[in-house]
Amino acid sequence: MSVYLDHAATTPVRDVALSAFHDVALLGGNPSSLHGAGRRARRAVEDAREQVAAALGVGAAEVVLTAGGTEADNLGVKGLFGARSAEDPARTRVLASPVEHHAVLDCVTWLAEARGAEVRWLPVDRRGRVDVDGTAALLAEDPDRTALLTCMWANNEVGTVQPVHELVELSHAHGVPVHVDAVQAVGWLDGEVGSLGADTVAVSGHKLGAPVGSGVLVVRRGVELEPVVHGGGQERGVRSGTVDAPAAAALAAALSAAAAERDVEAPRVAALRDRLAAGVLALDPTAVVQGADLHAPGARLPTNLHVTFPGCEGDSLLYLFDAHDVAVSTGSACRAGVPEPSHVLDAMGVDAGLARGALRFSLGRTSTDADVDTALAVLLGVLDRARAAVARAHGLAAS
C-alpha cells in the first residue's frame, strides 16, 4: 500500500473541491461577459470570493484571486515594493526572512538585481525562528527608506511558526507594510488570516485540497499594489486575466472544508507526527529533529517532521523510501533535484554535512496510523543502505 507523507508539497484533492470545480465548469461563460452565461460565471466567482473571505476572516473586497501561491507571493512582494517606491523613490530597503520559500526569496533577489532594492536579512535562531528584537533594530535603522518587510507564517521545510503578529505590529509602528506567505499555515494554525493584520497575505489552493492552479492574495483595504500582470484590469486592477471560475469555486470549497475540520484534524495529525518522531529517534538515536520544539504549543506546524540523519544523503533516503512506496521529501518540492544544501538549514546554522542528510515527513488529512507504522517499518533498512552508499562513495574517492 502506498504511503503519502509529502503533504507540504501538495495534498490530495478533496471530493468537495472536485464537485465544485465540475459544477461551475459546466456553466461556461466568461465572468467578465455581460450576457447570461457571463453573469452566471460571475455569480459563481463572487460566491466563491465570499466563501474564501469568510474562511480567512477578511472582507470579500480584500480577496484577489490568483493562479496559486507563487503568483500571490510575487504580486504581494513586487506589488508592494513597486507602489511604495513609486510614492517615494527613496524607499528601496526590503527586509526579508532568509528562510522564506523561493517564491519570496527569488522575488527579493529580483528586486535587488532589477529594481535596485537594498535587501537586509532578518536574523533567525537555531530553530529557524525570526528574532523579534533583531528585526526591531533593523526596522529602526531607516524606516523612511524601507519599502516592505516579508516573513512567512510557517516554514515549509522545518515547520517553524514565525512571530508574524509581533512583526506586523513592529513594522506598522514604523509605517512599513508587511507581506506574509501563509501557504503552509492556512488550514492548520490557530487564528484567521485577517487576525494577522498584514498588508498582503498569500494562500495556495492545492495545499488545502483544491486542484493545482488556484490561490489568493489577501490585500488589506487601502493598500496599493503595482500590478505584475497587465491586461483587462480584473481583480481590482492588480491581476489581469480571465478569472478561472471553476478554480475559484474549488478553492472556496477546499478552504471552507479545511477551516471547518481544523480543530479536529490539527491535533490528530500532530499526534501522528509525534508518534512518527518518537519512532524515528528510537530507531536512530543519532537523528536530529530540526526546527521548533515538537512539544512547544503553537511553535511548529502540526503536520511537519524534519529530521537530519548523520552519514546519509537526503536524495538517497528519498529514493530508498520511494522504493518502498513511501513518499517523503528532502525539502521544498520547488527545489527538488537542485544539488544545493537547503538555504533554510544554512540560515539556521546547521552543519553542512548534517544538512545533506535532511528528510521532511509532512502529514495531512489522509494520514493514518498505518502510514506511520509503514514508514517506521522500513526506516532501518533505508538508513543502512543510504549509509552504505555514502561509505562506498567515500571509499572510491579515497582510492
Rank of each mutant, 00 (worst) to 15 (best):
T10M: 13
T10K: 13
R14T: 03
D15A: 15
D15W: 11
V16A: 12
A20D: 04
A20N: 07
H22N: 06
H22E: 12
D23V: 11
D23M: 05
D23T: 13
V24F: 02
L26D: 12
L27I: 08
L27Y: 04
G29C: 03
N30I: 13
N30C: 12
P31F: 10
P31Y: 10
S32R: 15
S32H: 13
L34Y: 12
L34K: 15
H35I: 09
H35N: 15
G38Q: 05
G38H: 03
A41G: 04
A41C: 05
R42K: 13
R43W: 07
R43S: 13
A44K: 06
A44Y: 06
E46Q: 11
E46P: 10
E46S: 10
D47M: 06
A48Y: 05
A48K: 09
E50G: 11
V52N: 00
V52P: 01
V52R: 01
A53L: 06
A54R: 13
A54Y: 10
A55C: 02
A55T: 00
L56P: 04
L56Y: 03
V58I: 04
G59Q: 08
A60H: 08
A61H: 14
A61M: 05
A61S: 14
V63Q: 03
V63P: 05
V63H: 02
V64I: 14
V64N: 04
L65A: 03
L65M: 12
A67K: 10
G68L: 06
G69M: 02
T70D: 14
T70A: 13
T70L: 02
L75R: 11
L75K: 03
G79L: 10
G82S: 09
G82K: 09
A83L: 09
R84D: 03
R84T: 07
A86M: 10
E87S: 09
E87C: 02
P89H: 13
A90I: 09
A90D: 15
V94D: 00
V94N: 01
L95M: 05
P98Q: 03
V99Q: 03
E100D: 12
V104F: 00
V104E: 03
V104R: 01
L105G: 10
L105Q: 13
C107A: 08
V108Y: 08
W110D: 15
L111A: 03
L111R: 00
A117I: 09
E118G: 09
V119R: 04
W121C: 12
P123M: 00
V124K: 07
D125L: 01
D125C: 05
R127D: 03
R127T: 11
G128T: 08
V130K: 10
V130E: 09
D131S: 10
V132M: 12
V132E: 06
D133Y: 11
D133K: 14
G134D: 05
G134V: 01
T135G: 15
A136Y: 07
L139C: 01
P143M: 01
P143F: 02
A147Y: 03
A147H: 02
L148I: 08
L149Y: 06
